[in-house]
């Protein structure tokens, strides 16, 4: 849409006019100076980043930013959110408009390199799936030859879709619509046979937007790996480390059984790994250039990874997602934090 292009030009201008301050200098100093973390999030994706009725941002991606703010300032509210479209997000980060991009962004090689980004650890392992009306009688994605597929542009989804059909030697006809609402409307109006997006989003779209959710089925195949995580600018290792270890700290806390409820008890723990994590045995905070209470604050104010997951996307939410690959490695999942020592 025109506004998106204007925004893209705007950010391009920001790169043109912006001096070195926006891009080079240590982000941590700039963040400390202004007193908050500027965080780029999705314009609205339930479970990941969505403003509630009071205008407070909630979601898994939002909580990642809150964790970083808690680590730096000891205040999970020291965050300002910039809602971004898929198109705007990278330019916003590159130009220094935001400090962290936490917007269900898939970690890929080109984004990590030629886009000038650094990806902190994955906070949500997703995969791309297909949804079809039950009436079509399709049971598997391999039967989709010749189908019309609704997809949103500017995402890896669009590429995975093309790759999948090419690999299988099948034909398809894409209907690419930028607006989230319009693409949903087009699918439920029957413009397409198939709707494709990340599996996590698909469940919530079906449950909230379909006239009768039982009329649609999600096909069993996941056609891609979508490791979603926060990203920062290349070239500022100090800030990158902070974001990276803020995520790891929440995972480590879950593994050690530290939650927002019991963290004050756990500070007195005799376990040396817990002592190091929570700062009762100092050193880790100093290594990151932060207060020794950095991880304590994350857990106390935002929660451990398990709490963040269950609160935003877990089985008790409208998304009803199981932990699956997002469980701790000790439970057969992929969440694994390197030693904090």
């Amino acid at each position: 849409m025109k506004t998106k292009i204007i925004a893209a030009i705007g950010t391009a201008l920001a790169i043109a006019f912006g001096g070195g301050a926006a891009s080079a200098g240590p982000t941590l100093n700039a963040v400390k100076q202004k007193g908050f973390v500027q965080c780029g999030v999705n314009t609205g994706l339930p479970g990941f980043s969505n403003p509630d009725s009071q205008g407070n941002w909630t979601g898994l991606d939002v909580d990642v930013c809150r964790a970083v703010a808690a680590a730096i300032f000891g205040d999970a509210k020291a965050v300002r959110f910039t809602p971004l479209s898929a198109q705007q997000r990278f330019t916003a980060l590159q130009s220094g408009e935001i400090d962290i991009l936490s917007r269900n962004t898939t970690w890929t090689l080109t984004r990590d390199t030629s886009l000038g980004l650094n990806f902190a650890p994955t906070t949500f392992y997703d995969g791309q799936g297909f949804m079809v009306p039950k009436a079509l009688g399709v049971k598997s994605a391999t039967e989709l030859n010749g189908a019309t597929v609704c997809v949103q542009p500017g995402t890896t989804t669009e590429l995975n879709l093309a790759d999948y059909f090419r690999a299988k030697g099948m034909q398809f006809n894409p209907v690419v619509i930028e607006s989230f609402d319009e693409v949903n409307a087009a699918f439920f109006a029957g413009r397409c046979d198939v709707y494709t997006t990340d599996a996590s989003g698909m469940a919530s779209i079906r449950s909230t937007l379909a006239a009768n959710p039982d009329d649609y089925i999600i096909l069993p195949e996941l056609i891609s790996k979508e490791p979603l995580g926060p990203a920062v600018r290349h070239g500022d290792d100090e800030f990158f480390d902070i974001v990276k270890w803020a995520v790891y700290a929440s995972i480590e806390a879950e593994e050690k059984g530290i939650s927002s409820a019991n963290v004050d008890e756990m500070v007195k723990s005799q376990d040396p790994t817990v002592q190091r994590l929570l700062g009762s045995n100092p050193g880790m905070g100093q290594a990151l250039g932060l207060d020794e209470k950095w991880a304590y604050n994350i857990v106390k104010l935002v929660g451990n990874y398990g709490e963040i997951f269950e609160r935003n996307v877990g089985v008790k939410t409208s998304l009803k997602l199981e932990r699956g690959p997002n469980g701790l490695w000790t439970n057969g999942g992929l969440m694994y934090a390197p030693p904090i020592r």
Binding site: K4, I5, A8, I9, T11, A12, I15, A86, Q87, F90, T91, Q94, T110, R111, S114, L115, G116, P153, G154, T155, E158, L159, V176, E178
Partner: peptide
């Protein structure tokens, strides 16, 4: 539409615009 997708896949906003 095509240039937008190109912009996003390559990240080269200035060139695409």
């Amino acid at each position: 539409s095509v240039a937008n997708t190109t912009l996003n896949q390559t990240g080269q906003a200035i060139e695409a615009v």
